[in-house]
Design a binder for these strands. Sequence first.
DNA 1: CGGTAGATCTCGCCC
DNA 2: GGGCGAGGTCTACCG
Lengths: 231, 231
Amino acid sequence: MRLVIAECSVTYAGRLNAFLPPAKRLIMIKADGGVLVHSDGGSYKPLNWMTPPNKLHVADPSESQRDEGIIELWTVQSQKVDDHLIISIYSIEHDSSHELGQDPGLIKDGVEADLQRLLSEQIHLLGTDYKLIRREYMTAIGPVDILAKNSTGETVAVELKRRGDIDGVEQLSRYVELLNRDPLLAPVHGVFAAQQIKPQARVLAEDRGFETLVLDYDAMRGVDDADSRLF
Amino acid sequence: MRLVIAECSVTYAGRLNAFLPPAKRLIMIKADGGVLVHSDGGSYKPLNWMTPPNKLHVADPSESQRDEGIIELWTVQSQKVDDHLIISIYSIEHDSSHELGQDPGLIKDGVEADLQRLLSEQIHLLGTDYKLIRREYMTAIGPVDILAKNSTGETVAVELKRRGDIDGVEQLSRYVELLNRDPLLAPVHGVFAAQQIKPQARVLAEDRGFETLVLDYDAMRGVDDADSRLF
DNA sequence: CGGTAGATCTCGCCC
DNA sequence: GGGCGAGGTCTACCG
C-alpha cells in the first residue's frame, strides 16, 4: 500500500463525469491496484476512486500544465471498463509504501442470514406445531425467506428483516399474492418477522392481514448456544 | 488526518458484531473524528470504520493483553449511537499526521437527467405517434418521470431508471394507480423504461400490465449529437 | 428532522 | 460469470 499526501485535482470519466478542484488530499494505492482519494472528512466513501484491476501510469505534464503548477500527471485506467481517473499533482507532502500482506478478513455476526438460520431452527417461535418447509423458497419474483406450515397444515410465508419497515411488508405482499395463485399452496398466510418493527410497517402489515413477530436475536442465539452445548 | 500502519485486531460492536483477526492494516483517523481501517485490497469500503462524531480513547493494555503482545488499546466510541470500535495495537510501523484543510468537494455531471431529456426528445421510442405531455409531471406522491399520449390519445406514464428493478415497478404502480383516479387522464398506461431491466422486474411489470422498454443510451446520445450538429 | 430514491454503490450468495 | 438481495449501506434531496 502506497500512501501519498498531495495537492491535487482529480478528474473521473466513465459511468459519469466528476471533477475535484485542487486541494490537499490522501491518495491511497492498494496492492491490488485499487486507488482511493480521501479528504479529511466525511464518512468512509472516498471523494473519488478506481476499483481494481487497473493500471497506474505516471506522465510528465505538458508545457501549459507545467505553467499551472502541475508537476506530475497520474492516469489510472480501469482494465475492466472504459473508466479512468486523471490525478494532477501540484505538490507532494508525503509518500510512503508499506507491505501489508493478505488480510484474514472480517467475521460478522448478527446479519439477516443468522436470523434466518436461527428462526428455521426455532420454527416454534412462529406458533405451536409449525413445520419448516424450506428456507429461500424460490419464486419467479425472488426467494421467500422461510416457507412453513402451521398447525392446521396451511402454508405460511415469512419475510425476515433485521429492521422491519414498509419495504419489507411490500415484499411480503408480493410473495403472498404470488404464492396464493398456486392451488397446491393456497391459502398462504404472511408473517412479517424482524428484530425491530417500525410502527408504520406494523400498521401496514396488519392492514394486509399479516402477522407480525418481533424476534429477540440474543435470546435466539442463546438457545442456539445451549443447543450446541448438548453435542 | 493521521495515518497509522499497525499490526492490529479490531472489534466492532453496535448494529452488529464483527471481528478482525490480527494483521497489518492502515488506520486512518480523519479531522472530523471518522476512523477507517483498510486492508491492502478490496474496493473503497473499509474493513471496519466508525462514522463521526466519535471519541478516540487510548488506554494501556491489561496484564493479560500485554502478555498477548498488545501494546495499546484504542477505543472509538460513537457520540450518536451505542456503537464502538476497539482496536488492539500489537505494533506500529508508521504514524504520521497531516493538515489537509477543508475540501472544495466533488462536482458531478449526472446521467439520469440526460436519459430523461433524451427520451423526451425521442418520444417516438415509446411507439409511433406518441406525444410528450411533460417531464416531471407532479403528483401528490411525487413526480412522474414522463407523461405522454399514445397514438389513440390515451395517457401513458413512464418510469425511467438506469437499472430497472422491482422497486421501480412498484413506483410506477403507485403512479399509475393514482393517475387512474383522475377521470381527465384515465385510462393511464404504464411504461417501465430502463437501460437494463432485471428479469424479475420484467416479470412483475408485465404482470402489472405495464409495457417494458430497454433504452440504448449510446444510440440515443448519438441521435442527440446528430440533431445538435444540424444547428 | 425524517422519509425516499440513487449509487462509479459494495459485498456475498447461489444458480 | 450473471443475477439478485442486503448493507453498520452512504448520500443528496425534499417535505
